[in-house]
Design a protein around this nucleic acid. Structure first.
Lengths: 301, 301
DNA sequence: ATCCCGGGTTGCGTAAAACGCGAAATAGTT
DNA sequence: AACTATTTCGCGTTTTACGCAACCCGGGAT
């Protein structure tokens, strides 16, 4: 018998509805059904009475619910005890962009290091767009990433902050600047002749693509680049107009070499947060990191 | 976290020796090692301090041991409560030989039916030699079988009783009887000309084979037969000498048609008991059956 | 020194468990 | 009658656990 099954059962015992619990637990209805079925099998008694119309607890179900609550509470308690006892050990492998390591991660790591000095942190940086893949391939435990439009079901996402996604132009005097300086709307821009610098892939690319589709923009792509920082750098050099989250511009050393285009039609903001494989959250060091992140960024965003 | 892991940990915490625990738990050393490793991973702390020479509990290990004992005790308690509460439901599928269904199973089933009337019993009979296979293929939950010389690691065996394995001859007047009637030792018998009736396969065959090898017997096989009952029947008809557990002869209707050969060199007795897939013992109905069997046959044999 | 030996860990291939999807079954609803 | 809501079941796929065997590492014994 495992704690996960207890959680599932408790959820169903509360909602009395398999579908609703499935949603709430981020799993399929059939998985919920079978998890409960397995429990009933092991215990040799039905815990829930299903009659196609309503679900009710049986006597054994009520008794088991008490047991489950109790056991689960003790488990959580143990974890808290061991977790707060300080000497949490193990390692957490992180992946994020260079910018994120400064801006998002720095305050978080500061707190974490103090609270859990014995947990080793392994930090890998690279294109933010690779974050989700590295999580899925279990190359790293946690990644800082923009929230993809659709999250694979087995990764958990903890939103930390939002940053507006904007188009940026060079501030230095150059042809590109002239082309867009006075634009206030997509319609003011001659997209066919404007060199555009876009991300190769990733959430930012997706958001940009759908924005362009929405407003009928058929751009001339000057370059596809991996990494927001590189995009901003290229814009700063006057090579074209590029897309990047505001956070990256502010955090980098380029904020005086680029300026945002101030268009009516704003892009959807990027929701930036932590991702990890949901099942890995059962690891205490990882969960500690997750909690610290939540607290650092005010829990609810 | 699952109860199995708690059991494993408790065992290691007690023996302070992975190998010994592995044996005791019927699993491989590596499985034990990894189970403990997983726990440590989830809890973010080492529970056992291994230094190639001895194993000791860490502080967290001691604390966790308390938790594990406590949790496991409550789990057992819940199961007992639900189990003894009477209305245990489910089904148990049994496999055994015809003889075993009379002799071994009858008293056991009697008790079980009274105690757990809601559990359905499905009984299948056939050659006892197939028992282990049917368990391994999950065709049945429990089988009555002789204990094989080496038990597959994932099946559990509960010894119930022993029965001497003997050679049997016809009592009616016939050539075969003359050949062996006065034999008191293997050496007295002209094996090359004695028609021998042996099991096709299974534990009995193995025991017989090793016995014959040990005493240098090179028999003339008259027939290979599936099922002890059939062997006894053939012997009773005067077709030859056969091997079977005493229990089968006593329980069948042939006890006056056959007689045991009284040789100095006895065969190893057959240890008869229940087998099932170890993991299935987590099912409460099955465990109830297992317990009843143990009690019926005096727990320790 | 060198070679085994006891004892735990690790890589790899395989077997079992769990899952998600979609079909089926069955009431209640429009 | 068609439609919706809800649970279970069969099937193919993914994930997890296991056993085997190789390996690593200290401690004697030769």
């Amino acid at each position: 018998m495992e704690t996960r099954a207890l959680q599932v059962f408790l959820s169903v015992a509360e909602t009395l509805n398999f579908s609703r619990s499935a949603e709430q637990l981020h799993m399929s209805v059939s998985a919920v059904s079978r998890t409960v079925g397995r429990l009933e099998d092991q215990l040799g008694q039905p815990l829930l009475e299903r009659d196609r119309r309503r679900v009710r607890l049986t006597g054994a179900g009520r008794e088991f619910r008490e047991y489950a609550r109790h056991t689960l509470a003790e488990w959580q308690q143990l974890r808290r005890r061991l977790g707060s006892e300080g000497e949490l050990s193990g390692e957490v492998s992180l992946y994020c962009s260079v910018t994120a390591s400064y801006s998002v991660l720095a305050p978080l790591l500061e707190t974490f290091r103090i609270r859990y000095p014995a947990v080793e942190i392994m930090l890998h940086t690279g294109d933010q767009a690779d974050g989700i893949d590295r999580i899925l391939n279990a190359q790293d435990d946690v990644a800082v990433s923009g929230r993809p439009s659709q999250l694979p079901s087995r990764v958990a996402f903890l939103p930390l902050l939002e940053s507006p996604l904007r188009l940026w132009r060079p501030t230095a005097e150059c042809a590109v600047r002239e082309q867009v300086q006075s634009a206030r709307s997509v319609a003011d821009i001659d997209w066919a002749n404007l060199p555009l610098i876009v991300p190769e892939r990733g959430v930012t690319k997706d958001l940009l693509d759908s924005w362009m589709a929405l407003h009928g923009v058929r751009p001339k792509i000057y370059a596809q680049v991996a990494g927001h920082e590189a995009i901003v750098a290229m814009v700063g050099l006057g090579l074209g107009v590029g897309v990047a989250p505001q956070l990256v511009v502010e955090a980098g050393g380029m904020s005086d070499r680029v300026a945002a285009l101030d268009l009516q039609e704003a892009l959807d903001p990027l929701s930036i947060g932590l991702c990890c494989l949901a099942r890995r959250l059962s690891s205490l060091p990882l969960q500690a990191f997750w909690d610290v992140a939540g607290q650092t960024y005010g829990e609810a965003v």
